[in-house]
Amino acid sequence: MTSEVFRIAGDLEVRRLGFGAMHLPTESGPDRENSLAVARRAVELGVTLIDTAYMYGGGSNEELLAEALYPYPEELLVTTKIGLERRGPAGEWELDGRPEVLRGQVDNALRRLRVERVELLQLHRIDPKTPLADQMGALRELREAGKIGRIGLSEVTVDELREAQEVVEIASVQNRYNLLDREHEPVLAVCEQEGIAFLPWRTVAWGKSGADAEVAAVAAELDATPTQVALAWLLGHSPVMLPIPGTARLAHLEENVAASGLELSAGQRARLDGLAGVA
């Protein structure tokens, strides 16, 4: 039986199956009302970890979550990401990890989320044009100022994680990872060794898991969906794994959350482990 909870940085307890808010429409109208309902339903179902980012709508996703959930339940963690900025006439997103930019983005996130401190803030991507030590140093200073509780990274290699750790403690890593895509297994291994939370995104291979015959077979054996099998596999694969599947549909949300109660047998897990050549 896998544990349902994890303590990020050793003290911030969340249920391991979270919710990614990226797909929630934020424009006014029926779609926005549905997004508000989905966010509220996630909390009703016991989700205590919700992931957003400045990049998701240029902050509108953060504002949506605040409208839906503020004042936040005491046990709820809303984590956001910074480190990209819109540039040029087309408003294209570009990496920007300059300390002054990061400081401004944190202040704006606090305002949009209606909080005085972001308990977990992640650098959305490392900016190669800015020394990593400067980026991490800025986040460390923001933590010392009380605006950040804990610091995380996204889409990093083992070497980048190690370099960042030389400047500040890293509480989480958010990398692309799922049953059929385990490129970042070495990063997950380091996180597991050191108790760092690993928040996989693209958790169900954009819905492609069901196309795999083995996944479909295990789902049929358990009277579950392929998506649920993929999420259950993630939860059982590592104790530091905190999947954050996203959806804008209530039915899919409920399907995802129910995956936390799905138990794979040792034989089923071995069959799934072999899909990406991982023993």
Rank of each mutant, 00 (worst) to 15 (best):
L24A: 02
E214K: 13
L242Q: 10
R86E: 09
L242D: 03
N175L: 03
V173H: 06
V158L: 11
V187T: 01
E263W: 15
L199V: 15
A42C: 11
R16P: 00
F19P: 06
A266N: 11
S3R: 11
A219H: 12
G246N: 02
S265N: 13
A145C: 11
R16G: 02
R125D: 04
D11I: 06
A138M: 10
L139M: 11
E263F: 14
P89I: 14
L49K: 05
R41W: 11
A53T: 02
V43W: 12
G57D: 00
A53P: 00
V38C: 07
A270N: 10
R271T: 12
G152H: 03
V168W: 00
L49V: 04
S238P: 00
V168H: 04
E255C: 07
I148G: 04
K81I: 07
G104D: 13
E44F: 14
V190K: 04
L188I: 14
A109C: 15
I151H: 02
E67G: 06
G152A: 05
N175E: 10
H252A: 07
T26K: 00
L102Y: 03
G104W: 03
S154H: 07
V47F: 10
V167F: 01
E33S: 14
E169N: 09
G57H: 00
D11C: 08
Y54T: 09
G83A: 03
L17G: 03
I126C: 02
V14E: 05
E27P: 09
M55Y: 09
L132N: 00
P73N: 08
S35W: 05
D273H: 11
N61F: 02
E192S: 13
R182F: 10
R32S: 10
L179R: 01
F6K: 06
A133C: 08
L253G: 08
A66K: 07
M55T: 13
